[in-house]
Amino acid sequence: MRRGLTWFNATSVALGFAFLYLPILLLVVYSFNESKLVTVWTGFSFRWYGALLNDKAMLDAAWVTLRVAFLSATIATVLGTLGALALVRFGRFLGRTVFSGMIYAPLVMPDVITGLSLLLLFVSLDLDRGFWTLILAHVTLTMCFVAVVVQSRLVTFDRSLEEAALDLGATPTKTFFVITLPLIMPGVVAGWMLAFTLSLDDLVIASFTTGPGATTLPMKIFSQVKFGVTPEVNAISTILILVVATGVIVASLITKRREVERQKAERLALQG
């Protein structure tokens, strides 16, 4: 009950993190396994990474996935930021309940439903399924996550900063770009990163909404996994984990350093 870690708190946190990280760790370790059998360790090797480099289908899928993730995350960030502004700033407007419902529902909506309904829409509209339908689908899914992340930043935003800008003669549009946007930027960036990884990660919705020629990496991994566990999947998973983990850790280190510098500056200001 006291501050600090009692043995109970320490144990539960340690066990919890072990549970969260052990499977991932094992996956990474076995990606360097010489053997074709995933579960039997025979020796250290980069064999499967080499195999990956020659697997053109896998590399193509990775390239498609990256492009889809980049484009859809960018569009979703713009739309999601607008959505967050509409939710936080415009008080009551006609259809607000429907609107906020449409922002929150996709967060929990099972992927199979979203995927199926988007596919049937594309078929009804007679759109050729492929790269662009995939982007439409991913924007729809991820913009809601962006909206929620940006919203949490906006609600703590001091409105008097905008009022001060207006008071000093900046038009509402200028105020948004010079004051509001720079200050909610951390939220917008976090929203973009979340949208990017969600798109990178998605299997179900992509399976429904994509077409020939636009197979994504998760789809590729899924079909390989269905045939059985292969070390090559371990290798690509390891690369993905490394890329994402590096990105997230670097991003959070930067924010943390800024925070520390900020606190230091504040302490100095109080003394001086």
Binding site: T39, S237, I241
Partner: peptide, 16 residues
């Protein structure tokens, strides 16, 4: 952090 890594990959890890 694990949430940022692929859902599919994490499920796959348990298969092994």
């Amino acid at each position: 952090l694990p949430f940022w890594t692929s859902f599919l990959i994490r499920v796959y890890a348990w298969m092994g």
